[in-house]
Design a protein around this nucleic acid. Structure first.
Lengths: 214, 214
DNA sequence: GTCAGATCGTTACCATGGGTAATAACAAGT
DNA sequence: ACTTGTTATTACCCATGGTAACGATCTGAC
């Protein structure tokens, strides 16, 4: 990713926009999603109105930021999804890619998923247009498409694929979120556990002594 | 009639707290999670400082509200989880209970899960202490416990159960969220699709023509 | 040279909304 | 009646998103 290099054929406005986004990124990474527009403007060496000229409102800025990171993550996931290996391996690779990403940059992840975080002064923190849902929905749709394209699911293929796409993404997200907080095991282990779940081990497992199992 | 309305002789702090919570509930249901403390106070027939005396800050109020609804939902889920039927049936009943709940009261659901919503004036909307994660984590832990208690998972039982608990809850949540937005099918159908996913149908399905499947 | 007009930028300001003194009613115990 | 503790109110602080009005600067045309 050549974010910093001086791009040749870009209008000054586009260049500026990129610079502003990077400044915003730094601030958000440092201060969390509650970063104020003033702080971002200061980091960029300018003042608020310019930010508003470029991004409309705070939601616009955050959306631009989110899109940027989401694109990067999606690209990585697509690579894992498109690898020429067996299905189980592919699923594990995808899960691992996602988890590795959120492990490597938890701040970015928290920004994308959990808009608010601190409440030092008196405001709580801003959500600004709910960018978490877009990311998850995008991932869900993407996965649904891959499933629909490649897995033979009979007549209800389309519908099933979408349900599964969103379901699996949600599973990955929730498990990852919990794992990131508690770190109860290695990443590889988590990946195996989740793949096992997807592979129907819950259905296959026997009941425990004392009654019918879940 | 003075400000409080029809109160006989009931000045207990707990009663008041309950009344305030109900007023807050009405406002949040009407105006969404972005409801201001002033609005809530007005609905309750009192003023801000009283709310702050009772709940500390906005996060406290919203947390109290969330706990209340979460408790109700959890109770319903526990009933489905504890039914004396077979595992698959139980899983379907639990999924259906959850989905029926969010279908019946989407406003409540959105409040619990998606803190922000509108941005009429100029602020975006407040998250206030992230009450969505607590709900999901609580559900995840609860389910993990049920799984660990009743399913025989071998040596890693504990760990597996927690991963699965959070994973399944996340799957349910994400799929439900998407379903609620797009309504692509009947609830029963969604339940079946999700249960199928949990039952390993993804692993069992064949590849589509043209290459290895996901 | 100088003037019109986009850009790019700043200061000063508004409105909203969370949160908190300072203070007023008012009940009861003495 | 005097004190005391609870309850509620008014009036305020202050941070933040968002904007209007104004200034600087660079470009090309005449």
């Amino acid at each position: 990713m050549d974010t910093t290099g001086q791009d040749e054929r870009l209008s000054t406005a586009e260049r500026r926009r990129g610079e502003l986004l990077e400044a915003a990124d730094r601030v958000v990474l440092r201060e969390g999603p509650g970063a104020s527009m003033n702080a971002i403007a200061a980091e960029a060496g300018i003042t608020k109105p310019i930010l508003y000229r470029h991004f409309g409102d705070k939601g616009g800025l955050y959306r631009a930021l989110a899109v940027r990171h989401t694109d990067a993550l999606l690209e990585a996931l697509r690579a894992a999804l498109d690898a020429p290996s067996e299905r189980r391996e592919r699923v594990e690779a995808t899960l691992d890619t996602y988890l590795a990403a959120i492990e490597a940059r938890p701040q970015v992840y928290r920004f994308l998923m959990h808009p608010a975080e601190d409440s030092t002064t008196g405001e709580g923190a801003f959500d600004v247009g709910q960018h978490s849902a877009p990311l998850l929905r995008r991932l869900g749709e993407e996965l649904a498409q891959v499933i629909a394209e490649r897995v033979d699911l009979g007549p209800e293929s389309e519908e099933l694929a979408r349900v599964w796409g969103h379901g699996i993404v949600g599973m990955m997200h929730a498990a990852g979120d919990w794992w990131l907080r508690e770190r109860p095991c290695e990443r590889a282990q988590l990946v195996r556990h989740l793949a096992d779940l997807l592979w129907g081990r819950l259905a296959a497992a026997g009941d425990r002594v004392g009654g019918p199992g879940f």
